[in-house]
């Protein structure tokens, strides 16, 4: 099936006007599958890290949200061991007016501003709430170890 105009346009724009700290490159053999890299935001526990993600645009896109997953191991209350992300716009708050770019920006924001009250990784969230300092130290450690 031919690629919808929307996906072509988005891809072109991602290439032509890249967002600082975010890159998304489609696979040559599957233009719905993107290799993504997000830099850890300055001032966060993930600063200096480069996190790899995969992003897939399902058949229903943009009526359904893209599927996004972290490939790099990360210590974050809203991201689990398998790299799955708990983010409202990837689920019930999805709107077809969102784009790949806005999704990736939201993920970057999630890295600066973890939300332990709506956790996906329960043990991490628990640590984040009871001993924030230690949690941030672990997150930094993981960034050093896995994201560089």
């Amino acid at each position: 099936m031919a690629l919808p105009k929307r996906i072509i346009k988005e891809t072109e724009r991602l290439m032509a006007e890249p967002t600082p700290g975010i890159s998304a490159v489609p696979h040559e053999d599957n233009l719905r599958y993107f290799d993504v890299e997000i830099s850890g935001p300055d001032g966060s526990a993930y600063e200096g890290g480069k996190f790899k993600l995969e992003l897939f645009l399902p058949e229903e896109y943009p009526m359904s949200p893209p599927k996004v997953r972290f490939l790099t191991k990360i210590y974050h209350p809203n991201i689990d061991k398998l790299g799955r992300i708990c983010l409202d716009i990837l689920k019930d708050k999805w709107s077809p007016a969102h784009q790949i770019r806005t999704v990736l920006l939201s993920i970057q924001v999630l890295l600066s501003d973890p939300n332990p009250d709506d956790p996906l990784a329960n043990d991490v969230a628990q640590e984040w709430k009871t001993n924030k300092e230690k949690a941030i130290a672990t997150a930094k450690e993981w960034t050093e170890k896995y994201a560089k």
Partner: peptide, 27 residues
């Protein structure tokens, strides 16, 4: 086309009815 596809998805797939919002983000 996009509008009707959006509405059909909401009604047929998600079973929504009284809560279907404008397709725009955060509206």
């Amino acid at each position: 086309d996009c509008y009707s596809q959006y509405l059909t998805q909401k009604i047929k797939v998600e079973g929504e009815c009284r809560n279907i919002q404008c397709p725009s983000d955060a509206c």
